[in-house]
Design a protein around this nucleic acid. Structure first.
Lengths: 385, 385
DNA sequence: CGGAGTTAGTAAACTGCCTAGCATTATCCA
DNA sequence: TGGATAATGCTAGGCAGTTTACTAACTCCG
């Protein structure tokens, strides 16, 4: 344990951060409320909160019409608009950019289709244009952004590169962190899409109550993201959750059962074929149900491997196929029962395809919190790398 | 973030704990050394350390012959003997009890063979007798023990019971936590043997430098324990690492390749058969090498599933077969290469069959540290449940 | 309309902790 | 024996948070 000694100055910093955390995510609060929430005395909170206001971290709401007896209290509010973060989902088919304030409130977002065949420079240029547009519509510049997180498919190493593999054409040749850092100057991180989606499910999705989560991204591609003890786990080389690479786990072929189902209109694209099969299965079509069952059977082996390894509380079923969770989950549950010692809860994601960008926002916000924790709490300003 | 406000009293507690940690695991230290180590000022350390001495947590070593110029410094030492903990390995074939002081120094240990067929009450009675003997030889009573951790095979739930399954005959019927708590009154925990062995490898074994560790217990039984981000991971229901339950992972059958190897003396017991095969393989015996290769192939599927899921830094190969790591590891490495995206380091355990009891000691010590962190630092005394 | 009751804001006294600086003490070496 | 060195011990000063008491602002009700 590398605990280091604490002096009064450090104590004050800690208490100031405590106030920040007590303010954030709560409605405008009175000094008395904050004192109760933090365990500090009222005078102490008063001094601290006034300093926060002076520094620009909080703002005062002068008392208005009071509904209760007694002198109406001044209310203090975290100045969420002091800084903003970007969450970017760089997908094969689309780019999704989200801009939020420091409380995670969505300020602006933009979705643009992307050419699946587009090269890395093209794709990066599209990202740049989307970011430009989002900033412009929000009336901001790059200097207003405090942190950026980007989600891409494929395992991402510590430097933000997808050196092992990625379905994004040529993407392993680019260095998105360097590109965006040059532009923003603030902390930039790149992360795997499944991992970000897992973070989003714990933040705003169906797994807010859980600390041990396996997120399964089910779609044309299949992947997984892991949250253990409330923290996103990347693994030593950033490749945690890549159970699909195991040959005994037939994740690569699993969606093929859907595309190859007899009766699928031959004109349908791959994604539409799956949707057709799920719909047919829902209506009781024999062949479609068989196809879904085969899909579930293959999916279950990988999910079981993850579940047996980690024994999570919740498995979240997300990704493009999660809209058809009503068809898949019962079958998946049945298959998992055969493999698992202890069946975790199975829940279907409700965040849709915004989960990656949302998770990116959350990670960017976490980055800022980490900086606050480490450094001294100074006047609000974008951290620089 | 549920951070709570800090006042000067809490600050003092924290600083006192900081001193405790700086004392422990170091040779007797001067005030100046402690000040440097903790970042506190010399007078502050002086006051704190004197209070620790008064409370019984530390003791003074009066200056002896000084080797350098200047006034010789008083040295302070953590009073590791203020309390003791027990680590107990309840195996199928043996009971191993270890008694250590608060610094983890072994004070007494005892190994007794156990009847593999013995019922749970018999086994528990043997444990009791071993504990009695260890305490007696160390000149202690149950009241001197501050924490007890017990290792058993099979997944252990939060209450310390092996409700899912266990190779210990009838063991799921007993409640060892209740039994030992009644006897000791101090915190008692029961944990899975593989998990404890993993902890031991990080504490005193071959993985001291790693934070993300997969420990594989290889022997007649095969199992795994996981350390992620420096912390033992139990999973939500205590069944993390039980990848062997997956049918596609042939861990149950894997040792069979060794027992079934042509040429094994028919008189050999199961454990001896494996040892014979490893020895023969080391000497170049064709059939033995094939058997070991098959064993490695089956083992590798499970290790690959764990590795792909967690992307650890190190895989530790432990258990009874780890003495033959020189034969197995190269083959295992070769097989893993076929499955994994990023091959972790493979290391052979050197702790032998003491790893479970050692890990139990470590967990018991951790329990005490947790109590210290939470409560106020009072005079040294056994925590009571 | 004004006083009682309630709640918020503020000031002062007190306690506790850490730091800085200086005097004191003990040992070694010339 | 005296100077250099390094550790201990002590005192003053500053800072943070708590407690207590007092003032300010507002509502309710007679």
């Amino acid at each position: 344990m590398a605990t280091t000694g604490t002096d009064p100055a450090r104590m004050r910093e800690m208490n100031q951060l405590t106030i920040v955390w007590a303010l954030r995510g709560n409605p405008p609060s009175t000094v008395t409320e904050l004192a109760g929430r933090t365990g500090l005395s009222r005078p102490a909170v008063d001094v601290l909160v006034q300093q926060l206001v002076a520094e620009g971290w909080a703002e005062v709401e002068e008392p208005g019409a009071s509904s209760t007896v007694g002198r109406p209290a001044r209310r203090y509010r975290f100045r969420a608009g002091a800084g903003h973060v970007l969450g970017i989902d760089v997908g094969v088919h689309k780019i999704l950019v989200m801009l939020s304030d420091l409380e995670g409130n969505l300020v602006q977002s933009l979705r643009r289709p992307a050419d699946p065949e587009a090269g890395p420079d093209d794709r990066l240029a599209t990202v740049d244009r989307c970011v430009d547009e989002v900033l412009r519509e929000a009336g901001m510049t790059a200097a207003d952004i405090w942190a950026v997180t980007v989600g891409v498919t494929g395992p991402v190493d510590a430097s933000g590169r997808t050196s092992l593999f990625t379905p994004l054409p040529g993407w392993n040749a680019v260095d998105p962190v360097a590109h965006l850092t040059e532009r923003f100057g603030c902390p930039v991180q790149v992360e795997n899409d499944c991992k970000l989606a897992a973070v989003a499910e714990r933040w705003k999705g169906v797994a807010q109550d859980a600390d041990d989560i396996v997120y399964v991204l089910a779609g044309i591609r299949t992947g997984a993201g892991l949250i253990i003890d409330g923290t996103l786990r990347r693994g030593h080389g950033g490749a945690a959750g890549e159970i699909g690479a195991l040959k005994a786990v037939r994740w690569l072929d699993a969606p093929g059962h859907l595309a190859g189902c007899p009766g699928v209109p031959s004109t349908a694209a791959q994604g539409e074929a799956a949707a057709w099969v799920f719909r047919a299965a829902r209506e009781g079509d024999r062949a479609a149900r068989t196809a879904v069952r085969r899909y579930a059977r293959d999916l279950a082996v990988g999910v079981a491997a993850l579940t047996l390894t980690l024994d999570p509380q919740v498995v979240v079923y997300g990704g493009g196929f999660s809209r058809s969770a009503d068809v898949v989950l019962p079958m998946l549950r049945q298959e998992l029962t055969k493999h698992c010692l202890r069946l975790p809860e199975l829940r279907a994601s409700t965040l849709g395809d915004e989960s990656v960008a949302l998770g990116a926002l959350r990670l960017a916000l976490d980055e800022i919190d980490d900086r606050l924790l480490g450094g001294r709490l100074a006047a609000p300003a974008a951290p620089r790398v």
